[in-house]
Design a protein around this nucleic acid. Sequence first.
DNA 1: CGAAGGGGGCTAATGCCATTAGCTTTTGGG
DNA 2: CCCAAAAGCTAATGGCATTAGCCCCCTTCG
Lengths: 187, 187
Amino acid sequence: MVVRARLTTAKVVDAALELVDEQGVEGLTLAAVAARTGVATPSLYKHVASLAELRGHVGVRLLEEMTGRFTDAVLGRSGDEAVEALMHAYRAYVRQHPKRYAAMPMDPLHDELQQAAGTKLIEVMLATLRGYGLEGSQAIHATRQLRVIVHGFASIESSGGFGLPEGLDDTYDQLIRMYLTDLRGQS
Amino acid sequence: MVVRARLTTAKVVDAALELVDEQGVEGLTLAAVAARTGVATPSLYKHVASLAELRGHVGVRLLEEMTGRFTDAVLGRSGDEAVEALMHAYRAYVRQHPKRYAAMPMDPLHDELQQAAGTKLIEVMLATLRGYGLEGSQAIHATRQLRVIVHGFASIESSGGFGLPEGLDDTYDQLIRMYLTDLRGQS
DNA sequence: CGAAGGGGGCTAATGCCATTAGCTTTTGGG
DNA sequence: CCCAAAAGCTAATGGCATTAGCCCCCTTCG
């Protein structure tokens, strides 16, 4: 008698992430997850409410993973050094999982399931900028601008949007310098 | 006797764009396009090779439309004024068609069908930066950075990724100023 | 004027996928 | 040991893309 799969929601999400890494977001299908976890498709509904909810869980995972990476990168640093480390860590994560980035939720704060994880990610960014002594709305603008640069670059790079990959490191370094210079001018 | 639909590829793409505007990219389905154009689903294959190809055509449309808008915005201007006009036009387009922006191809240069339209769009940006006298790779970096900012902001804004819409105009203005300052420092 | 042929539309059929309903088996706690 | 809930399964439905094969109108050429 075969041992039961002993599936859990976490394991379903694990399989989903593998699929995304291998085949992109379009490859994330309940049928494929079921095949990979050795279970019939309808059985997945015992662990996940729907494909949409599974996508939501995947989003939470990504947010948590990125938050962890960025926290590690920023720990023990401050000021320009911390910002630089954060921006490099962001790009590094996306380069490591290019397909995965397309599944990153862009509006986690408007989703019940993802709100907590999304808030934490934003907080890491805000905390990293804390040392610049930005007041009120300036801190918000600075955080948004950081997101714009970091996400804009990652989004284009991960989808192969830059013609040739040549000199991309330089392009990114210059963006970092641009942002830091701007930040310095405000504090 | 009912008049034939007299469908053309262009009309199919028109209907596709309407659907995207109304229901987002996920709403773009051959069945829905068929219903809207008053035709049976398989008939669409006389004008379009597949759903994937239709998406490609939609992408071309978007690229062409944006190129037109940006060209208009930049005409008769130069330097900072031109860059500013371009960036405002970019954001204005995306605000006008938020759902549509999710269908914008991010790597048009790697697609046979979209390559020409994508090249033209990039060329408008390059031409707008021409007055700064950037040399060789610096022109490429500057163009990439412009894309990063403009796409990063548009992408996040159009998907509701900024918590509150409050002060978004300021955030964008500051990004424009950041970019122009950086550009000035290089020329 | 008339006939051929191709463009453009249609129906039927296939296969994949998500989702639901209802049944069965396992398993862990009492 | 027992039994109820948890976790699987099969069968069925409905949406969608895609393919095959048919038919009719319109244009063009003889």
